[in-house]
C-alpha cells in the first residue's frame, strides 16, 4: 500500500510540474464556466436552481480530457525504458497501475473541487437539491475513474502517446455515445444488453439523485476490468519479452 502511495504522489507531482495539471484546470473550468453560466442552455436559461447544466457539460469535457491525461502515463515509461527501473524495484505491477490510477483520479477530484463555488452560487440563488448535487459529483467521479482505467489500458498497449490517446477515446466513445445510439435504435434483448453497457444511462440514473447498486456495480466492474487488463498487459513483457 505504501508503494502505491509513493507512485501516486510522484505522478501527481509530475502533473503539476509539467503544467499538465494547470492546463487541465484552466481549460476545464473555462469550458464548464462558459457553458454553465454564459452560453447555451445555461443556468439562467433554465431558470432553476440546479447544477444539471454543469454536470452535462462536465460529462463531455472530462470525456475528452481524461484520455489526454492518461495517454502518457504508461506509454512514456515504456518508450523511455523507465518502467524497467520501476518494476525492478520492490514494487509489483499492480501497485504501479493502481498508483497511477489514483494519481489521475486525485487530479480530477482536485479539478472538481474547484467547481465548488458553482454549488455555493447556485445554492444561494434558490433551493438546491443536495442529494442531486452529491450524486451528480459522485457520478462524475465514477465516470472519470472508468475513463482513467480505459485510458491507462490504452496507454499500456503502445509506446506512442497519440495512439494511446486515440485508442482511449475510441473505446470510451462506445460507452459514452455508441451504446446509447444502439440501445435506442434496437429492440429486444440486444437493446437491453446495450442499455446495460451504456454509461450515459447509468450516469443519468445517478444524476436523478438515486444511488442504485446496479450503477455502482456497473462502474466498479468497468474500473476493475480496465485496471486488470492494464496490469496483465504490463505483466506480458515477462513472458513474450
Amino acid at each position: 500500500m505504501k508503494a502505491v502511495w509513493i507512485i501516486a504522489r510522484k505522478e501527481l507531482k509530475s502533473f503539476f510540474d509539467s503544467l499538465i495539471a494547470y492546463i487541465l484546470l484552466v481549460l476545464f473550468l473555462g469550458f464548464c464556466g462558459f457553458f454553465t453560466w454564459i452560453y447555451g442552455s445555461d443556468v439562467f436559461f433554465i431558470g432553476q436552481a440546479t447544477l444539471r447544466p454543469f454536470f452535462s457539460i462536465a460529462y463531455w469535457t472530462l470525456f475528452i480530457f481524461i484520455p489526454a491525461l492518461t495517454m502518457r502515463m504508461i506509454a512514456e515509461e515504456k518508450k523511455t525504458g523507465t518502467i524497467e527501473l520501476l518494476l525492478t524495484k520492490p514494487i509489483t505491477d499492480r501497485q504501479l497501475v493502481v498508483g497511477k490510477f489514483l494519481a489521475a483520479l486525485m487530479l480530477i477530484a482536485i479539478t472538481l473541487l474547484f467547481t465548488l463555488p458553482y454549488v455555493i452560487s447556485i445554492a444561494s440563488l434558490g433551493n438546491l437539491d443536495n442529494g442531486e448535487v452529491v450524486m451528480g459529483y459522485l457520478g462524475l467521479l465514477l465516470m472519470s475513474a472508468t475513463y482513467i482505467a480505459i485510458g491507462l489500458y490504452a496507454s499500456s498497449i503502445t509506446n506512442n502517446q497519440i495512439v494511446a490517446f486515440l485508442t482511449a477515446l475510441f473505446i470510451s466513445l462506445f460507452f459514452h455515445v455508441i451504446f446509447d445510439v444502439l440501445d435506442n435504435g434496437l429492440s429486444g434483448w440486444l437493446a437491453q444488453l446495450f442499455n446495460m453497457l451504456n454509461l450515459s444511462a447509468h450516469f443519468e440514473s445517478l444524476q436523478r439523485g438515486v444511488l442504485d447498486t446496479k450503477d455502482l456495480v456497473y462502474f466498479f466492474s468497468l474500473i476493475f476490468l480496465g485496471l486488470y487488463l492494464t496490469e496483465s498487459n504490463i505483466a506480458r513483457r515477462k513472458i513474450s519479452g
Partner: peptide, 25 residues
C-alpha cells in the same frame, strides 16, 4: 540495478528523483 541506456525521468530534479527511488526501496 542500472539498466542498459540508463533510463531516467528527464523532467525530475536529481534530488527529487533520488528521494523517490529511496522511498520505493
Amino acid at each position: 540495478y542500472l539498466p542498459e541506456n540508463n533510463p531516467l525521468y528527464h523532467d525530475m530534479p536529481v534530488v527529487d528523483y533520488l528521494e523517490f527511488c529511496a522511498a520505493l526501496q
